[in-house]
Write a protein that binds this DNA or RNA. Structure first.
Lengths: 342, 342
DNA sequence: ACGAAAACTGGGAGCGCTCTCAACGCGAGC
DNA sequence: GCTCGCGTTGAGAGCGCTCCCAGTTTTCGT
């Protein structure tokens, strides 16, 4: 298979390389009949340009990278990542970009991955999930290399960097305010890790809601989880001794774990303890008591990240784009609001 | 950034392009002191060869593709895929390969993805997850394009194709035999989709175990699920009317759904209905009643797939490799065996 | 019908590597 | 001391595409 080249196609169509290239890339200035003739040859031969050759000549690889943390358990237990990945993958597909996946687990992974993502000729741009340990470092790398970059989730140092996020503070505020309105007096929270902006912001929203309604902040009602199911479970065990009548969990997965702990202790949901989660992943509806939660548009979020990245690739990385997406409170059973079908 | 090239490095080190290339690729026939001199320049300049240029010249992209089905819900709900992906990604990283991810959802996705994976100059090889709808077609494509290919999970037509799998029949056989030994008389199964070899094989193992122990096959005790939690749930609702005293579910996720249905109906696990699942994903231990299940080595499975693929890339695709990995019965609470801590 | 402008087409020069091959020492063997 | 052979090095020719530019054809106004 002396693999077909542009040249061969050109010969068959009786035109030059350049013309075939123009047809291939949908460029103007090709006579209609010539274009069609070339297209026919392309179709009949099944010709597809050599990706590496094109990348070398055009200095565009049509590939974007996705860097995801894999902090031991997170990638497994939190379906959030699957959903995000799916949204990004589908968007890439739509734009005919290839998606390169980089899962960063160990320190050694980092060492191998970091140089690779900034390597010339491999990636046109990169999406980095914020909130993991080496975040700062990789963002710096990428920035130095002038590699177009979109961070999914606001990073710690967000100047000069494009990111896409939801308004975590406000969303959490709404969730907690909802619990207050329902008459709960001792509202606890299972917060996310406080080394991530998500964790910080959602807790800030919780605090803000309580303050605004004149509640004082009781530190014993705040427990930090790690976004895993068992993290939620153990956090709730701790929280239980503070006797909360409602809990705002910073993720659905943690909410599920927490609800398991509550059930085990013999209390009922939502009567004894009301719950609001965060994410609205499909699992939110699978539990015995369906979860009231904040819906964030995970798939669109991914698509928008790709959109933005491609924009950066094509139009330069300045000025940095900051995009905030909308969220929504979805009321189900676990909060005890009249809406619940129970 | 007039991006550094091989030529520049060569000049700085006072040698030729060729010599730098040799050093870069760890090839022999370079004098020790020269090699060191070049390595120093490489290190101090931070030079990294242009990926596309290298791919074009060497006809090797150092990238492999992973094609995953995304049949609506599956990729979300079944953590199996996350684990597999993780195993594959880490193996790629180890070998300094880049992983390109292709998530196939809709028919349109297929149309965009199928030509892309067989495209010259993009991928050195491909791993395809078996069991999805367009499986046959893409395997055919790839085979015609002589693209090195490893199928994860035995495909329907397995001649001429390398694949890696576990012995599903035997594993299911062991699971069901375990339930028989525990004294259960009416053992049902929630089978996987019968259009996939996994679904078929695990059911075959179930049938084989019953036959071997002199049980007759009661069709009302066999219900087909779709590997989702809710699929398991509804399958169990159906199965309940056949009054099984034990159930072998073809996946952990389905087992979880089924157990939810059993609990809802007021029966207890394992006393009224015993359970054995399949996969041994972390979720197996998260339920109130920990799941007895078949452990399959998902991460190693992925690593082995990458291993095999690279072997095919380097040593030719013939003869096709067929690799079967070991599984293990993990006894926990849900089967009611004395081992359970309940 | 004629010239200028616009539209189209082809050739050539890369893009930054790898790889073959010829040339060049240099020590060993006779 | 001379040749042979081996390890080492560099030059050159691509890999298959894009893109610029110059040349050619077509179009259009007058």
């Amino acid at each position: 298979m002396a693999s077909l080249t542009l040249e061969d196609v050109a010969k068959q169509a009786g035109v030059s390389r350049s013309t075939v290239s123009r047809v291939l890339n949908d460029r103007p200035n090709v006579r209609k009949d010539v274009r069609e003739r070339v297209q026919n040859v392309i179709k009949s031969t099944g010709f597809r340009p050599h990706a590496a050759a094109r990348a070398l000549a055009s200095q565009r690889s049509w590939t974007i990278g996705l860097v995801l943390p894999l902090s031991v358990t997170l990638f497994f237990t939190d379906p959030y990542y699957s959903h995000l990945t799916k949204g990004i993958a589908q968007a890439c597909n739509q734009y005919n970009y290839t998606l390169a996946l980089f899962l960063v687990g160990t320190k050694e992974d980092e060492e191998k991955i970091f140089p690779r993502v900034s390597r010339k000729g491999l990636l046109d741009g990169v999406i980095v999930q914020s909130g993991h340990h080496g975040e700062q470092q990789i963002i710096g790398h990428l920035h130095d290399a002038k590699m177009p970059l979109v961070v999914a989730g606001r990073p710690f140092r967000s100047d000069n960097v494009s990111y896409i996020d939801i308004d975590n503070i406000n969303a959490a505020f709404i969730a907690v305010t909802h619990l207050i309105r329902l008459g709960n007096k001792r509202i606890g929270t299972i917060a996310g890790p406080q080394h991530s902006t998500v964790g910080l912001d959602r807790k800030a929203g919780y605090v803000k809601a309580l303050n605004e309604r004149g509640f004082s902040i009781d530190e014993s009602l705040i427990v930090e989880g790690d976004f895993t199911e068992s993290g939620g479970y153990y956090a709730m065990k701790k929280l239980l001794s503070a006797k909360p009548d409602a809990v705002f969990a910073a993720s659905d997965v943690m909410a599920l774990g927490a609800m398991r702990a509550v059930r085990e202790s013999g209390l009922s949901i939502p009567d004894d303890v009301a719950f609001v989660g965060f994410d609205d992943l499909p699992i939110a509806t699978l539990s015995d008591v369906q979860l009231t939660t904040i819906r964030q548009p995970v798939a669109q979020f991914g698509a928008k990240a790709v959109d933005t990245l491609i924009d950066l690739v094509e139009n330069g990385i300045n000025p940095p784009r900051h995009i905030i997406m909308e969220t929504e409170l979805v009321i189900r059973e676990s909060c005890g609001a009249p809406h619940g079908k129970k």
